[in-house]
Design a protein around this nucleic acid. Structure first.
Lengths: 354, 354
DNA sequence: TTGAAAGCGCTAACAA
DNA sequence: TTGTTAGCGCTTTCAA
């Protein structure tokens, strides 16, 4: 007898377990486990018999139970900040596709923009996820430390913690900011505005500093660069631009850089829809990210493309999900310079001489 | 001695368990469990002592382990279809906010548009989720049956299975379609086009049938209604409209109904950006859903608002997550008539006489 | 290749 | 209010 007396499944019908399958197939419960484990030592015909029994009973293995012993849940937590920005939805979609293709489940957490992800992270820890990917949200060093101690890999996507040793992947934001500066300059702009995003995000800061550096090198002075706060969202940028230039408050610059595409679209809508200013004829506009919406009519936004797939793949790779749970940490890996690409569209007009 | 000999935590440092905490606090392991269970019978000072010990050891309870006995994971699966439609992102955001507020985790699955969600569902089952919410994706009756047998509540959001007894929540799509028809008629339109969405989705079908019914009642005949396939996405609608009316292929109607806002925006971009046709002067346009993007300049889309919060709340309520796992099913509950609201904006122009 | 048995970290019934 | 004990459904040694 494969299933010894006293070890039968005692529940009244609900929830078929491996014991039920074992009983039907006339094998031990361990054999059922092996039948569902690729590469386990089990005879082909035994497995076949077990699988048939399982099918008959509509048995579905309980991953939760197995993860108790294997110490792997095959769940990856994704913590999402600014869901209003289509770029992060693009990232999420890509993340989901890749992770699902690997047979991993995604435990999703959304965090209000600017809010700390600490409590989300705390809940994540209870669920024994195999790894955590955090995009667009703040987190405390206490939390990164906690993850590290517990051996849960954490990687930041599209942001980093300066001076801290948390793995992270970012594109070359400052280089991208510089590209925009150069494009504007080549197109003949001399007075500028920039609409900034999350004041605590490294991404926004780096794009800004690259942009400014490019401008300064061309001899543009600070008083020719207006800085506006857009808070990383469409409405923020639209309102900031409208407030800044309504009623001829101040002179409209030659070019405006929206630190991300969503904001650049807000900039354009404020300009064209509220202030009656033409883009690119009166003012040039550029964004950053290359979201689909920005490529459409009537935006046709000149922007810097972030290689989402590459970034996502690198982030997942940094999780090192396939190494053993207790494996030693082979050093920090931070990739902050994934190359970006300038996408010329219609909102920056090149002068003839170019 | 609270922790008996032979029952100590035998792992070498990794992973603090309730046994470690119990040992430090000088209580039984069960006491630790109680300390972390709200409402459990435990003295206040005992709990306090345990919590301190836990803090010292940085203990985090293992939800996976507890769910093995409680038969509740506090995880809800959300299966997402068309992520390209901002409406579903809005739904997802709302779902996430509500579920997280209840202390539940979200296991997310994305499914390609039109693809079956059966394998996603199969994976969900392994994870013993407490409930499943499915938006915008196909699923087989085999799967709904499987969920039902296993006692896992499943609710469809924004679609339903005709003739099947799967709980679902939808707004009054056909009533909304009718509202659009009436708005167009009041504005003086006599020739129409409609861009259809997912051919297998009840939502698209109902909106269409409501729209047609409204038109027929006003005496409009079928030959004055052009049907186009937009496949529920922006690009599909844009291309369909462009193909239909390029080079004066056929006469442009007075009004075009995009079965959802994303498509209506595609319609407008094709009209204005590719065909040089003015909206609403030459052609009126209306959508459905009321996504933020459609409310912006230059769209200002007239549309039907789906009450997302209400729908999400009802969907979650239908899951009946707070009833006992084995509780008897108190009948099917389907809510297909959550009222919608017509939102007048600029793409449908009312005539003077109104 | 198989089965028996010992857990994984926790909850819950029971007794004290 | 507490501790003891028996599992939850599975994986994984260890022998056979």
């Amino acid at each position: 007898m494969a299933i010894p007396k006293g070890r039968e499944n005692k529940r009244n019908g609900t929830c078929v377990t491996s014991i039920d399958v074992a009983a039907l197939a006339g094998v031990s419960q361990a054999a059922v486990s092996r039948a569902f484990t690729p590469g386990a030592p089990i005879a082909a015909d035994t497995r076949k018999r077990i699988l048939e029994a399982a099918q008959k009973l509509k048995y579905v293995p309980n991953s939760i139970a197995s993860s108790l012993t294997t110490r792997r849940t095959n769940m990856v937590a994704v913590i999402l900040g600014n869901m209003n920005n289509p770029f992060y939805m693009k990232v999420f979609k890509c993340l989901a596709a890749r992770l699902q293709a690997q047979g991993r489940q995604i435990l999703t957490f959304t965090v209000d923009t600017g809010a700390s992800s600490d409590d989300a992270l705390m809940r994540v820890l209870r669920y024994q996820v195999d790894g955590i990917i955090l995009t667009s949200a703040q987190l405390s060093t206490r939390m990164t430390a906690l993850c590290h101690e517990r051996g849960i890999p954490l990687v930041l996507l599209n942001r980093y913690v300066p001076s801290a040793e948390t793995p992270s992947v970012c594109s070359d934001n400052s280089g991208g900011g510089r590209m925009i500066a150069e494009a504007f300059l080549r197109a003949g702009a001399r007075r500028f505005a920039v609409v900034k995003g999350d004041p605590f995000g490294t991404t926004s800061q780096d794009r800004l500093s690259g942009f400014l550096a490019g401008l300064f090198e061309a001899g543009i002075t600070r008083n020719h660069i207006l800085e506006l706060e857009g808070n990383a969202v469409y409405e923020g940028a639209r309102n900031a631009v409208f407030q800044a230039f309504r009623d001829g408050n101040q002179p409209v610059p030659d070019a405006i850089f929206g630190i991300n595409d969503a904001m650049a679209m807000g900039v354009m809508d404020a300009l064209r829809g509220m202030l009656n200013i033409c883009v690119p004829e009166d003012v040039m506009v550029a964004g950053f990210d290359d979201i689909e919406e920005g490529a459409r009519w009537p935006y046709r936004l000149t922007t810097v493309r972030q290689p989402v797939e590459t970034m996502v793949d690198k982030a997942i790779a940094l999780l090192k999900l396939d190494t053993k749970p207790g494996a030693v940490d082979t050093g920090i890996c931070i990739d902050h310079k994934i190359p970006c690409q300038l996408i010329w569209r219609d909102t920056v007009r090149l002068t003839e001489q170019n």
